[in-house]
Simulated scan of single mutants.
Amino acid sequence: MISEPFSQGQSLLHRMDARIKILSMGLCLTSVSAVQGHAAALSALLFGAGLVFIARLQISSVLLRLAPANIFFLVLGLVLGLTYPGESLDYFSRLSHDGLSLALRIFLKGNALLLIFMALACTSSVPVLAQALQGLGLPRKLTLLLAFTFRQIFLVIEEFQRLHRTVLARGFHPRCTLHTYQTYAVLFGQTLIRSLARAERIHSAMLLRGFSGHFRPLFAPPWNRADVYPALGLCVPPLLISLHDRWPW
């Protein structure tokens, strides 16, 4: 998500006000997190996939970013199946039926939450999200921390790549040896030290240019009432799913 591959687009979700998207996302994630049944979790997953379709996100990129989480869910399902108390399966006596059922629910809800987050949050850039969070009343220090962390990540990666090219130019060849581990430990340490020094220079340059502790946006968009109705429409399905799961009718 660091390279913001989903922030550029012309879909309805890309054009929607980031503040409204954040509020809608909070309600959707809360509703999906509260479901307990498998049918409700599957419905939430289909809702998340629908949001991804509305946002016109590239399916291969979405699946690529879901892969690490699903690997974790697979390992978690194996652990729960072997350790969770309950009735065993007929054909696999060592696997717990209740453990696998819990793992399946975690898998469905986890993927649904990730899809909703990608469709609503990742369709806006990090600076826009930071400005939107500040507009919603989040403490200014937290929004600055988000903005500067996002910027500093690129500087840390750039510094590490520069140092790595330096050691490669001096004949270093990575191997599974103690010398290789020591070399990479020194690289990481030097990267942190140089990144800290660079961050101090950036802060001094910002102060020199009149930085007073908060950013002044060139354009502060007003609340757009036209975005409220689609946002409310997005919140209705997960809310109905959660209510039906808790109180079936």
Rank of each mutant, 00 (worst) to 15 (best):
E159N: 01
A130Q: 06
T149I: 00
H173S: 00
A185P: 09
L136M: 09
R170A: 02
E158N: 07
I153D: 02
A185N: 13
T149V: 00
C176M: 12
T149G: 01
V128Y: 10
C176L: 11
L145E: 14
Y181R: 14
P127E: 08
T177F: 06
Q182G: 11
L142E: 08
F160G: 09
L145Q: 10
T143L: 14
G137C: 10
A130E: 07
L155S: 10
Q152T: 00
V186P: 05
P127N: 01
H179L: 07
T177Q: 07
R140K: 15
R162T: 02
V126K: 13
H179P: 02
H164R: 13
R140S: 15
Q152A: 00
L163G: 03
P174E: 05
V156E: 01
I157E: 09
I157W: 10
T143F: 10
L155Q: 13
Y184C: 05
K141Q: 15
L163M: 08
A147S: 00
A185Q: 15
V156R: 04
V156W: 04
R162K: 02
I157C: 01
T177D: 12
L178M: 14
V128H: 08
Q131E: 15
Q131N: 11
L142M: 15
T143H: 09
Y181S: 12
Q134S: 15
Y181Q: 14
G171L: 03
G137N: 02
L187K: 13
C176F: 10
L138V: 15
Q161Y: 05
H164C: 01
L146M: 07
R162P: 00
I157N: 02
R140N: 14
R175E: 10
F150P: 03
V186I: 14
A132C: 09
V167A: 04
L136S: 14
V186M: 11
L187Y: 13
F150G: 04
F148Q: 04
L168Q: 07
Q161T: 10
L146V: 01
L136W: 06
L168E: 09
Y181V: 12
F172A: 05
H164M: 05
S125I: 05
F160H: 13
H173E: 03
K141W: 15
K141M: 15
V186C: 08
L178W: 14
L155E: 11
I153R: 04
L138A: 11
Q182A: 10
T166H: 12
R140H: 15
E159P: 00
A169S: 08
